[in-house]
């Protein structure tokens, strides 16, 4: 079994939004919607100000509330790597999954179904990296299998300090930010 995860180095990220554009192009994300986005998080008071730039998306949680609340099982965990996906033809558009996500990562596609990041599963199945990772000009994004202790993502998480987003929501997110 694999457990796919993404590790993003916030020290290297400059917030260029190439990942956002790559995702929109690769996945034909409709105009006005985003599956990934950049968050600029500034903390502190001048002169001790800290800024973290993060490329954010669905966290493909290990304990995914969006999958549990789905009344039709359209939201599901994919066999490969624990990726959270939506069967478009099974979604009724009730929006419970949108409300249940602490990251607000989902949206309603203009065609009526719930849509979100897929970790570019169509690319990953061919052995490629997700589009956002592949295009990153600063190489700050890493994609891999956490179940494999030899993978780059596992090693980075051992070597570097990191944090996930809103762990207190109990969803066990699988995107980690190196600090």
């Amino acid at each position: 079994m694999a457990r796919f995860a993404m590790v993003i180095d916030t020290v290297k990220c400059v917030g260029c939004m190439d990942c956002v554009v790559a995702c929109k192009t690769e996945n034909k994300v409709p105009e006005g919607f985003n599956r990934d986005w950049i968050t600029t998080d500034a903390k502190g008071k001048f002169p001790t100000v800290q800024m973290e730039i993060r490329s954010e998306r669905c966290n493909h949680c290990d304990n995914p509330p969006c999958v549990y609340c789905c009344p039709t099982k359209a939201s599901h965990v994919h066999d490969l790597g624990g990726v959270v996906l939506v069967h478009h033809h099974m979604c009724i558009g009730c929006k419970a999954c949108l409300a249940s996500c602490p990251y607000d990562a989902r949206f309603i596609h203009p065609d009526g179904y719930a849509d979100k990041c897929t970790f570019c599963i169509h690319r990953v199945e061919k052995g490629l990296d997700p589009a956002c990772v592949a295009v990153c000009p600063t190489h700050c994004m890493y994609f891999g299998d956490l179940d494999d202790v030899e993978s780059q993502v596992s090693k980075l998480l051992l070597e570097r300090k990191n944090h996930a987003l809103i762990p207190e929501a109990g969803t066990r997110p699988e995107i980690y930010y190196l600090i």
Binding site: C69, T72, C91, I92, G93, K95, A96, G112, Y113
Partner: peptide
């Protein structure tokens, strides 16, 4: 519902963890 024509999908399954 945003995907109204698929409403029948509610009755093709029973999701134990979903109150809906």
């Amino acid at each position: 519902l945003e995907h109204k024509f698929y409403v029948w999908r509610l009755y093709t399954t029973f999701a134990v963890k979903s109150p809906m």
